[in-house]
Simulated scan of single mutants.
Amino acid sequence: MTETHSPPDSFSSSNVPAPTPKQIKKWRNYLADEQAEGAVYRDLASRKTGEEREILLALADAEKRHEQHWRDLLGPHIGKPLKGSKRTRMLGWLARRFGGVFVLALAQQAEGRTAYEADADAPAKMLADERIHGEVVRGLATRGRQRISGTFRAAIFGANDGLVSNLALILGIGASGASHGTVLLSGFAGLLAGALSMGAGEYVSVSSQRELLAAENPSPKASQAIGDLDVDQNELALVYRARGMSSNDAETHAKNMIANFTAHTKLAEDAEHDKHEAVGTAWGAAISSFFFFASGALIPILPYMFGLDGLQAVWVASALVGVALILTGTSVGVLSGSSPLRRAIRQLAIGFGAAAVTYVLGLLFGATIA
């Protein structure tokens, strides 16, 4: 029977039995992955500044503890350095060339897929580290998501709507027996009308949302009045009770505000800026929505632009749109930290389902007209 190695929680490997060839191979792979993960964090840090850079470098330093654990276990069996897993190497390649929230989202998923949970050779402290690292990366990724969420939402929704609506439009018209020219003209009309509608709708939507958020911000004059309040009989506590605090908490908070009042004291919470940032700008959302809808709506028209017709054009258009839907679904899955495959399949099913309905309706109406 092979003796099981059980390192203590202190990451020490002294006075342990000689490792088996299987353990040596596994530990060397773990060491390579830890080294690659540390490199990913350093590459990401090189593209950041300020606090985010410091956090990423601290994560890279933390990975060195894990490296040392496997070095200690391997001892003289450490051998030549190995490459990390393909997934980690790909993450490193993306980090060096792009950085950004998508790489952070992928890193978040990678931290959540640790193999240490089912491995007796990895101490509990190491597994706990990986869990905490995942939450740190989640926090950094959330910052990035908030910065791009408004424009990204408009871009993804715009592209998806363009793909699905124009594919459904040209399939429905084509199935009715309309000529090649009519299908092509309808496709371009749907592209322009949909892009203008999406752009205008996003502008109004984001503008309205920002106005509603602005209406929630306390008045600057109210903040200036804090210093002149009657300390014994003030209504500042009512402000915090109106925001949902209990009576006792509101009174305590109001007293602290008055006691620590300065010329820069504000009633507004620091999160107000983040809320506006998460919504995005009206023009940014409108322009993104317009161009991404147009780019998505152009794809199902391409076969007709190159002279294809009938079922051949239908199959080519459907295949092109299917690839694009998979890409948009995967992007959303990666950014949200959920399964990219599941999101891609969902996008594909919804898009093709809508197109199939209009195609069948086109066949029915075409037969009726004939």
Rank of each mutant, 00 (worst) to 15 (best):
V137E: 01
R138A: 02
G139E: 00
L140S: 03
L140N: 05
L140Q: 04
L140K: 03
L140G: 04
L140I: 03
A141S: 10
T142H: 02
T142Y: 01
G144I: 06
G144T: 06
R145V: 02
Q146Y: 13
Q146N: 15
Q146M: 15
R147D: 11
I148L: 15
I148V: 15
S149N: 14
S149Y: 13
S149V: 12
T151G: 13
T151S: 14
R153F: 15
R153L: 15
R153M: 15
A154E: 08
A154N: 08
A155R: 03
I156T: 15
F157G: 15
G158W: 12
G158F: 12
N160K: 07
D161R: 07
D161S: 14
D161H: 08
D161C: 08
G162Q: 06
L163T: 02
V164C: 01
V164P: 00
S165K: 01
S165Q: 03
N166G: 01
L167S: 00
L167M: 01
A168Q: 00
I170A: 00
I170Y: 00
I170D: 00
G172K: 05
G172R: 07
G174D: 04
G174Q: 04
A175M: 12
S176Q: 14
S176W: 14
S176R: 14
S176Y: 13
G177L: 12
G177D: 13
A178R: 04
A178F: 05
S179L: 08
S179F: 05
S179N: 09
H180Q: 10
G181M: 10
G181W: 07
G181C: 08
T182G: 11
T182L: 13
L184S: 12
L184E: 11
L184T: 14
L185W: 12
L185V: 15
L185R: 12
S186K: 07
S186V: 09
S186A: 15
F188H: 06
A189R: 12
A189S: 15
G190W: 08
L191R: 07
L191D: 10
L191Y: 11
L192C: 06
A193R: 10
G194P: 05
A195Y: 11
A195F: 10
S197W: 05
M198H: 06
M198N: 10
G199V: 08
G199T: 09
G199A: 15
A200D: 02
G201Q: 04
G201M: 05
E202L: 02
Y203E: 02
V204W: 06
V204C: 09
S205P: 03
V206W: 06
S207Y: 09
S208W: 02
R210M: 14
E211Y: 07
L212Y: 01
L212N: 01
L213V: 09
A214D: 11
A215C: 04
A215K: 11
A215V: 03
E216M: 06
E216A: 05
E216L: 09
E216C: 02
N217P: 01
P218H: 03
P218R: 02
P220G: 09
P220D: 07
K221V: 14
A222D: 15
S223D: 12
S223E: 11
Q224P: 03
A225W: 11
A225Q: 15
I226S: 12
G227C: 10
D228Y: 11
D228K: 14
D228F: 13
L229N: 07
L229Y: 05
L229G: 06
D232V: 06
Q233P: 00
Q233L: 01
N234L: 07
L236N: 02
L236D: 03
L236T: 03
